[in-house]
Structure formats: structure tokens, C-alpha cells
Design a protein around this nucleic acid. Structure first.
Lengths: 195, 195
DNA sequence: CCTACCGATCGGTAGG
DNA sequence: CCTACCGATCGGTAGG
């Protein structure tokens, strides 16, 4: 990684470099010295901008999870449950596609947060997953979703498919986020069997 | 974690302790001293049994991925693609259920392997995923799977749902691996919409 | 943002 | 498996 002389916006540069390093080497595997080198300053100089290494992680994870929550809030509450689920899947994939590295940090590195930082992120994560659970319940109540499904496991399967996208989606790949999200939504909603 | 005096099988004890610590704190976040304390010996004593910290990780990850490969090989090659997919899903969930901590290490900590170690694990992982891709292709060819699906994305969605199980499945929870795997297989194969 | 540095801890080793 | 230790590196700080 070549150092960047982004002296105008030091904090932005720090967050960008840290996101890349945390996603590749993990929080514990990334040192303050690695980040400083990526930014193009000496290690001690970082502390003019950050308080601690953990605060840096918290900033990245919290901004990331907030993106998912905000995207979910744009969804039309009056649509049918299956349409809402489709829109939620699309919103999720678009957030992943916008910044897969940050998403990897959001879903894998939150474990290294401690105390109140960790609790706040877990609360937001639960809130996000509840949006899926609510739509699942509404779909079952409305008779749109298969009543033989276990709703908890169906939601966990959908979240699994979505969280996994951050591992393989490449913004410079052949498929747009819109196409990928439609294909995931179809696979999830209709299944793989021929109808 | 209380130290265990498993002096009869020191290597087994070391692997068990390391698996638990790597799954909770990550490879980089776990020190040789943490492992030694969990085993109940002094740090330097570990090196009577292991070569390096990375060899310890390699041992855990390779045994883990081998479990998935071996389970997949037991599947009846003469069954229909949809039956084979259902059996593969069940085999996967049973391996996860048998040892979720090891599975978390297999899917998240392999990144800390270097050089040839990393290459060998990635090769085995690709071989495992190819089993899913083969069944998907067979199902499309046989007309059992929906031809409007993107097969790559369908497989990635299934792998995502399955890989996610290690994050939430608890062997001491209310559902057996057989029940969970059937419910995941139903959700994946038939989708969530009412038929 | 740099110079210069702190005490703590890291993976690993020699010799027993 | 322990004693005793190595050089390297860690997150972070004081003073400029």
C-alpha cells in the first residue's frame, strides 16, 4: 500500500487506510505502525487525530452498521412483505457493494470492541436483524411466506447469504449491485427448485 | 478458562484450547501465553509439542476442512441433484454442529496462514465449493433447478447460509443438527414464498 | 506532525 | 515441562 499524502483530510485518510488493513489483516493483526505507514506519517503522529486504536475500529464499525440501518429505513412500509423483503435484500447488497472492505470489518471485527462500545454495536446489529424478522412474520401472517418454514432459521439463512456477499462481491466485477441483489432475492424468495 | 491437566494427551489439549481461543479472540489476538495458560503449562513448554504458532493454526484449519470434504464424499452419487443438495446441506450442518468453534476458525482464521499453508487450504476450500457447483449444474441440466437462476450466485447464497450457521448454532440449543439442516434445506430449495 | 522514548508484551530458544 | 532469557515489536506519550 503506497502512502497517501491526504493532508487536507487526515482523519478521512486514516479511516480509509485502517479499513483496508483491518479487513485484510484483522484488528489484532494491524498495528498502529501499519496504519501510520499507509497514511504516510510517523506512528506517534496518528495520536493527534485519534484517541486509541479501539476508537478507530469503533468509528469504522459504527458508520458501517449505520449505513445498513439507514438503507433499511428507506423501504416503503406499505408494500407487501415479499416486496419489502426484496427491497431489503437490494438495499443490503447495495451497501455491501458500495464498500465491501468496510462491510467485512463491520461483520468480522466488531468482536474486538470492548465494554460499552461492543454493547452499542451489538444493539444496533440486533435492531437491523429485527427488520428482517418483522418482515418474515408479516409475510407468514399474510400467507405470502410458506407456513412450514421455521421463521428464525429462514431469517438466519437470508442473513447468511447476505453477509457472505461481502466475501465475494467485487465492485469492479461483471455484475452490478442491482443485478446481484435481484438474483439473490430470487434465489432466497423462490428457492432453487423449478416451480 | 480453567487450566486442564490433560498430561496424557498434551497435543490434543493444546489443539482444543487453541481452537477455543482462536475462535473467540482470533489468531492474532491469541498469544502463546494465553494458550499455555489454558493448557496449564508455562509458555516455553508448548514448544516441546508444536513448531510454531502458525503450525498450530494450520493443524486446526486443515483437520476442519477435511471434515467437510469427507462428509461430502459420503453422499450417494446416484441420487437426484435436489436430493444430493439436500444431503450435502445436511452433511455440512452436521459438521458445523459437531464443533462450531473449529468451524469458525476454519472459515475466518485461514487468512492468517501464509505461503504454502495458505495455498493448500484455499485449494481444499475451492474443492469443497466445487461439489456444490457440480450439483447446481446437474440440477439445472436435469431441469430440477430453476433455469432463470444465476448458478454462481445461487451457490454463493447457499454457501453463505451454511457458513453463517457456525455463528449462531449451539449444540446445546433446542434444535438438533438434523432438524436445522432440514429447515435450511427447505428454505434454500423451496424458497420462502408460498407455493 | 516529528523526535525520542516508555513499560509491557510478543514468538521463540538454550540448557537442563 | 521448567528456568531464564533473547531481540523485536507493541500501543501510547511528552515535549516541541
Amino acid at each position: 500500500m503506497s502512502p497517501r499524502q491526504n493532508l487536507a483530510r487526515p482523519m478521512e485518510s486514516i479511516l480509509e487506510v485502517a479499513t483496508g488493513l483491518f479487513s485484510e489483516a484483522g484488528y489484532s493483526g494491524t498495528t498502529i505502525r501499519d496504519i501510520a505507514k499507509g497514511v504516510g506519517v510517523l506512528p506517534g503522529s496518528l495520536y493527534a487525530h485519534i484517541e486509541t486504536k479501539e476508537d478507530l475500529l469503533l468509528g469504522i464499525v459504527e458508520v458501517g452498521i449505520d449505513h445498513f440501518l439507514e438503507a433499511a429505513e428507506t423501504i416503503d412500509r406499505d408494500a407487501t412483505p415479499s416486496d419489502r423483503m426484496r427491497m431489503l435484500i437490494r438495499a443490503h447488497v447495495e451497501v455491501v457493494a458500495e464498500n465491501p472492505q468496510r462491510t467485512l470489518v463491520v461483520f468480522h471485527q466488531w468482536r474486538y470492541l470492548t465494554g460499552a462500545n461492543r454493547a452499542r454495536i451489538l444493539e444496533k446489529r440486533a435492531r437491523y436483524e429485527d427488520i428482517f424478522r418483522k418482515i418474515m412474520q408479516d409475510g407468514l401472517t399474510a400467507g405470502e411466506f410458506d407456513s412450514s418454514l421455521d421463521p428464525k432459521i429462514a431469517v438466519l439463512s437470508i442473513l447468511g447469504a447476505l453477509n457472505w456477499t461481502a466475501e465475494w462481491y467485487r465492485p469492479d466485477g461483471p455484475k452490478s449491485a442491482a443485478v446481484v441483489s435481484d438474483q439473490i432475492a430470487t434465489a432466497v424468495l423462490s428457492g432453487v427448485l423449478t416451480r
